[in-house]
């Protein structure tokens, strides 16, 4: 039973990460790609970690995957923000893609 749960978590997590990769290729510019690189990627990893924890369910493994999960949640938005900010400042975004740009107007 627990192996079924673990398998489902691992496969769902992998599919989520796959959509992140597809988004990276298909989205039109740096800013939109960062969405793909943060959200489905983070959840994909969290699901895979949950699958690993469910499969092994020993304390050291759970401790380790919890650390990975926490640091992923803390660092992914910061990394995405840094990339997005620098891309915007360097003018590497596609402004025709935008309906409103309140940063340029302000």
């Amino acid at each position: 039973m627990i192996d079924v749960v673990a398998a489902v978590l691992l496969v769902t997590g992998s599919l989520m990460s796959l959509t992140a990769a597809i988004g990276l290729v298909r989205f039109p510019d740096v800013l939109t790609r960062m969405h793909a690189a943060t959200k489905p990627q983070t959840v994909g990893l969290l699901l895979i970690l949950a699958g690993i924890a469910a499969h092994f369910h020993t304390l050291p493994v759970i401790a380790m995957v919890s650390l990975v999960a926490v640091f992923q949640l803390v660092t992914a938005p910061v990394a995405a923000h840094m990339v997005a900010r620098n891309a915007y400042r360097a003018g590497m975004h596609d402004s025709r893609q935008l309906t409103v740009d309140e940063l340029a107007d302000g």
Partner: peptide, 22 residues
């Protein structure tokens, strides 16, 4: 959010236009 972005990534249509808001 992840399901939404995942759907926008794999659906056949182009991704929607985006915006920068203050």
């Amino acid at each position: 959010a992840s399901v939404q972005v995942a759907w926008l990534a794999v659906r056949p249509a182009r991704p929607p236009r985006s915006a920068i808001v203050e």
